[in-house]
């Protein structure tokens, strides 16, 4: 896979958030909050299917992480990963997620981990390797969070298998998926006026 958007190192980005950046980031979060809500129900329903190799289910884990990469890739502002994930988490809490307030905690961890990677490039590098690194960082945050909250008793081997499955999932679904979605959105013409639209 090539570079997501042409330039590897862009110009010094404008860091002030316009109203449009705020609302579009938030609405991406909201759209994914709705997706999360449906995905959360499907996720628990998938359990019987994966009862023999439950860690294989974590190959689908990265659906939860998409806003943490997609929203920053579109608006390219500091804080976009955390803001989009928190809005998505807040929506799925308010409309009644299975995971309740923990959605907010995991949303924060997932967003903040991706944010660190983008901050490290000073929000100037949006190439595929950086997106993949942010996605894997986000998955790592989620992995540690889940270990502490939901899988305390599980043996180390299974934890490592889960981590591996989540990392693969993050690169393919979160980073790859975000690039494909941005391409489709750009072709539809809705990204005009955003850095990702050029």
């Amino acid at each position: 896979m090539g570079v997501a958007t042409g330039q590897v190192t862009g110009p010094v980005p404008a860091t002030r958030w316009r109203t449009r950046d705020i609302v579009v980031t938030a609405i991406i979060g909201v759209a994914f909050g709705v997706v999360f809500w449906a995905w959360g129900l499907a996720w628990s329903g998938l359990d019987p299917l994966f009862s023999l190799a439950p860690w294989a289910k974590d190959l689908l884990y990265a659906v939860w992480l998409v806003p943490a990469v997609l929203a920053p890739l579109i608006v390219r502002k500091p804080g976009a990963a955390v803001f989009a994930e928190m809005v998505a988490a807040g929506v799925s809490t308010l409309i009644g997620s299975v995971w309740g307030p923990d959605t907010l905690l995991s949303g924060f961890v997932q967003g903040a981990a991706a944010e660190l990677v983008f901050a490290f490039t000073l929000y100037r590098n949006w190439s595929f390797p950086i997106l993949a690194a942010a996605a894997v960082a986000s998955a790592a945050g989620a992995w540690i969070h889940d270990w502490a909250i939901y899988y305390t008793g599980v043996s180390l081997e299974v934890q490592l298998l889960r981590g591996l499955a989540m990392a693969i999932s993050a690169v393919v679904i979160t980073a790859g998926g975000s690039v494909l979605i941005v391409r489709a959105l750009r072709e539809a013409g809705v990204l005009e006026g955003f850095p990702a639209g050029r």
Binding site: R18, R20, I22, A31, A184, L185
Partner: peptide, 24 residues
Amino acid sequence: LVGLLILAIRHGDRLALAMDARAF
């Protein structure tokens, strides 16, 4: 999902314009 995001972003744009017009 792509269709949903296109419509969502368009709606977000209009919303932002309306909010800016009211000096939000």
